[in-house]
Design a protein around this nucleic acid. Sequence first.
DNA 1: CGTTTACTCAACCTCATGGTTGAGCAAGAC
DNA 2: GTCTTGCTCAACCATGAGGTTGAGTAAACG
Lengths: 125, 125
Amino acid sequence: MVEQDDRLSRIFGALADPTRRDMVARLAAGDATVGELAAPYDVSLQAVSKHLKVLEEAGLVRRSRDAQRRPVHLEAEVFDLMTKWIERYQQQAEERYRRLDTVLARMQGQDSPTEISDPAEGAAG
Amino acid sequence: MVEQDDRLSRIFGALADPTRRDMVARLAAGDATVGELAAPYDVSLQAVSKHLKVLEEAGLVRRSRDAQRRPVHLEAEVFDLMTKWIERYQQQAEERYRRLDTVLARMQGQDSPTEISDPAEGAAG
DNA sequence: CGTTTACTCAACCTCATGGTTGAGCAAGAC
DNA sequence: GTCTTGCTCAACCATGAGGTTGAGTAAACG
């Protein structure tokens, strides 16, 4: 993660930590203060504060003010960005798989096998 | 990322790197060898090999054998795991937002404003 | 056989990450 | 004003990630 200036790297990087994912999961149910978020974990409040900074810089949460408290709010919109990235390549891969299936089915119907090492090679490069 | 024994941490961690995300993107179009994958990047082949190991351990790719070549294949199924995780909390957060909207609409219909500092506070805790 | 190709493994370096503790700061409580 | 609460900032430390180079391995080529 040496170069994570881009948005997606920050988002994926933020969610690569189980504690942070758990925080996101809990924040989906409702806003919470830093202290409330920290309670279940066996780490210092400062560590939790750091985690929140990572989530904030990734755009996953927003921190406001309420007296001494800093209520944390989940920004659900970033999920769209991730979903879009994932779905793009998921669909692409699935489509390729379907095409491969068609090719294989066509080959089975032929008489000469023609010695093909790996049908997928043609799509590489 | 001190503790990434769990599946999702490995997957998110693997995709937190722009080079690895690019590899995944290219692999979605078709299988490729390590050399082919390494070609566009300004890093050593060993570095690319390491990246592939990370992707493999996250279950994102599978490496087979073809003579000296090690064709890399994208495992699109893991995307389902990510999508499920994302959608779960995305929907939860959206639902909460809808409920909040309902509450706010109901309050506007009332006569006494009852001094509310931050509507989101009610969902915390 | 030796050479070339296509990689992986091992050692090392540097910097980021996640944790710690101690200090500081803002706002309500007394 | 002083105390307490709820946090952030700063310094430090250990580990891990991503990069390097050099050596080693497996299979095709000569």
